[in-house]
Design a protein around this nucleic acid. Structure first.
Lengths: 335, 335
DNA sequence: TTGAAAGCGGTACCAA
DNA sequence: TTGGTACCGCTTTCAA
């Protein structure tokens, strides 16, 4: 494989000059530049990124650390980030952490060894101190889908509480008069915020009782169980807001088994805006701008990598109500 | 950040010795080793992978190039590969090619520049020559979900034709007497093989007519359209084998709209074994060992990277019939 | 068992 | 506008 020296020799110039034309930097005569370019061409020279990085430049590589690419939320994120990275000439290393702090630590080490330029991190187990530590080693980090208010950490989250209110309000608007909530794990900020959003609107209703809230795990199976539990407690619920779409799918399956009709007897709405295409009937949901979260995360990260000043705080993104079949009014549904 | 020199100085040895203990290679006295280890510890030394790679060792990085991580087939693959890679101390770069040859080329270049150790490639647009070219540059490549018989290219595919036969046979067994096929794009080997599998079993039936086969695109929307088309041609089909699961979902949606009951009126079976959890009713399908494909791909790649001899041919993996609700016999269904 | 020194393939400063 | 050269941090002979 040809090196800068080979190119220099062939073009009859020094390696310094070759380096200049590679980097388009410093003074080079058009004529010599052409010669060098031609030499590179004929040798099909590819600059060794390892060497460039070693010699001081960045690795043009970032890492994306997520719990699990199998969770349908993350491929969208990964896609957005990879797109943005590619656009900017960066390469993305994928890391699945499985919510496992030990695996996270191990990855952090590897990433340091590889001198990656930055990290986009989705983790619900991570301690803010760990992020701060990375930053002290001057590794830029952008946290997504989780936040550490008060810490000097840049994070990107959706307006979870507001979205939850939108969802519940929508159920009201569709005529629901007894609304339950299937919530995610409360140690997750997002789950908590969505729960609060529900509570804000419902706790003051005369029909409200705390047993309308069932705690679950953000997974399909958990959603099913939670739905059954909710139904056994309150056979007359006519609307359910679930903390995420996966649990709505679970709820839907449970109701299907029981022969309960959606949306006729119970209306269902979720949160996230994922996997919508798979499910019958089409789900109403609060759509997170996942793609936008990803590309913005990448943009912030690049700014930090370039040493530009960015506000290391919590950035909140707007969500959107998507109305589909699972919350349709019955009469509308008969079209 | 501490270097090997700092460690050497602190431990009172040369950098060569430090290098030896890092790599557990060559003779080092237990005593000096301990001293070096301690020095590394107190300096919290992390070997610079860039430098190591440059000095001749591998980058311990491989690339995974797929069309699109959003297609639910690929996260499973990515997960398997990442797991195996992680286990082996390798790191994975994710590349979405979007079936775009230009993007593929561009990535190939980047990957060469980065001196990645190998590539796992899922592409339906790639020409065998391109793979051969990479191999000539001594970049090991493992191709998955596509194959180039006769070429010296290692590829991993499922037994598509056999799986298709299993699916169709199952429909027969469940009592179907007129079976349609919704096929994928015929320029894809997998789609073609599955189509052949269907044809083998059905073309000799007395009820068979070519119009029982509808060509589609492996996507949900395409599946819906194809199902409607099939139904308009043959209102009496009682079983459908679709080339992949996504199209079954589409078919299911179309049937749901029309009020046609699955499996009562029409039985549906797909291929892949993905996204099964999302759908109601639970889909019968031919399960590809996706995870196993991924981990085997990684293992083969590592062997090639280590310079071991592996048969650069097509490796076929067994598939499995998964029977669930969408093909249940009606009487069974009334439990 | 250890150390000296020559690279690996670039970048970037200083002179020319 | 160019070239010489000292690194970047590590691996790997070859001698000692």
């Amino acid at each position: 494989m040809a090196t800068i020296r080979d190119v220099g020799k062939l073009a009859g110039v020094s390696i310094a000059t070759v380096s200049r034309v590679i980097n388009q930097k410093g003074y080079v005569l058009k004529k010599t530049e052409t010669a060098v370019l031609k030499a590179m061409e004929t040798l099909s020279f590819k600059p060794n990124e390892m060497a460039r990085s070693l010699a001081g430049k960045s690795t043009r590589t970032i890492a994306l650390m997520i719990p699990d690419i199998l969770n349908p939320f993350f491929p969208q994120l990964a896609r957005a980030i990879e797109d943005a990275a590619n656009e900017l000439g960066f390469t993305v290393i994928l890391c699945n952490s499985d919510h496992n702090p030990q695996k996270e630590r191990s990855y952090f080490n590897i990433l340091e060894n590889k001198r990656i330029d930055g990290l986009i991190l989705a983790s619900y187990t991570i301690q803010p101190e760990a992020v701060l530590e990375l930053q002290q080693k001057s590794i830029p980090v952008v946290v997504i889908d989780n936040s550490f208010p008060g810490q000097s950490i840049l994070s990107l989250v959706s307006k979870n509480r507001e979205g939850a209110r939108m969802a519940v309000q929508h159920l009201f608007d569709q005529g629901c008069r007894k609304i339950g909530h299937i919530g995610g794990p409360l140690h997750l900020t997002a789950a908590r915020e969505r729960y609060f959003g529900y509570e804000e609107l419902c706790s003051k209703q005369e029909w409200f009782v705390p047993s309308l809230i069932v705690q679950s795990d953000f997974h399909i199976g958990g959603g099913s169980k939670a739905m059954l539990e909710l139904l056994s407690r309150h056979p007359d619920v006519d609307g359910v807001f679930a903390g995420n779409d996966l649990m709505v799918v679970g709820a839907l399956k449970a109701l299907y088994q029981l022969g309960v009709k959606v949306p006729d007897q119970i209306k269902l709405i979720g949160f996230d805006g994922i996997s919508l295409d798979f499910v019958i009937p089409d789900l109403s949901t609060i759509v997170q701008p996942i793609y936008s979260i990803g590309s913005q995360a990448m943009n912030y990260l690049i700014q930090m990598i370039h040493g530009e000043a960015v506000e290391k705080t919590v950035h909140e993104l707007d969500v959107e109500l998507l109305v589909r079949q699972s919350t349709k009014r019955v009469q509308e549904n008969e079209e």
